[in-house]
């Protein structure tokens, strides 16, 4: 009987307790910079970073988006941002805006990772979070205020 108890005790002590969900270790972080500040509209209420797994501007689905729950601090010149995101590849990392009195519309993009404001060119760059590299840093995004007023 003692042997059985001892074996049971060893077995139990050797087991790891499964605690299920834990903190999300993977994330995308970076800095935001703004261009064309003089075009900044008064009716912009908030900015939020998003990461999109499959980016197709014609067929954009909510189920492909990871949305940060924290808005970007617009009063700073170069605010930091981060998106807690599961491991995987993201075809678009972007900042979206919301107009005062309106709801979020995730097609209202103010800037994305890969955009070059000098040459005014760029394609969205893929960001990958893997087990070996769960944090993608320096994913800096340039936002152009003219996009919010529909000039360009």
């Amino acid at each position: 009987m003692k042997k059985i108890l001892l074996i049971a005790l060893l077995f139990v002590s050797g087991c790891e307790i499964d605690h299920g969900l834990g903190p999300l270790k993977s994330r995308i972080t970076g800095k935001i910079s703004f261009v064309n500040e003089n075009f900044k509209p008064d009716n912009i209420d908030a900015l939020r970073p998003i990461a999109v797994t499959k980016w197709d501007p014609e067929n954009f689905s909510l189920s492909d988006i990871v949305i940060a729950n924290t808005s970007v601090n617009m009063s700073k010149e170069n605010p930091d941002y981060y998106i807690p995101a599961p491991l995987g590849s993201y075809e678009l990392v972007a900042i979206v805006y919301r107009k005062k009195g309106q709801g979020w519309n995730y097609t209202q993009i103010l800037g994305f990772y890969g955009f070059d404001p000098v040459t005014y060119t760029g394609e969205s760059k893929i960001v990958t979070l893997s087990k070996t590299k769960p944090i993608a840093g320096e994913i800096d995004i340039v936002c152009d205020w003219t996009w919010a007023v529909g000039i360009k």
Binding site: L21, P23, L24, A68, N69, T70, P84
Partner: peptide, 11 residues
């Protein structure tokens, strides 16, 4: 929850 790193907090 606010985010998964603050799973017992609301936004």
């Amino acid at each position: 929850w606010w985010e998964q790193d603050h799973a017992l907090n609301v936004p």
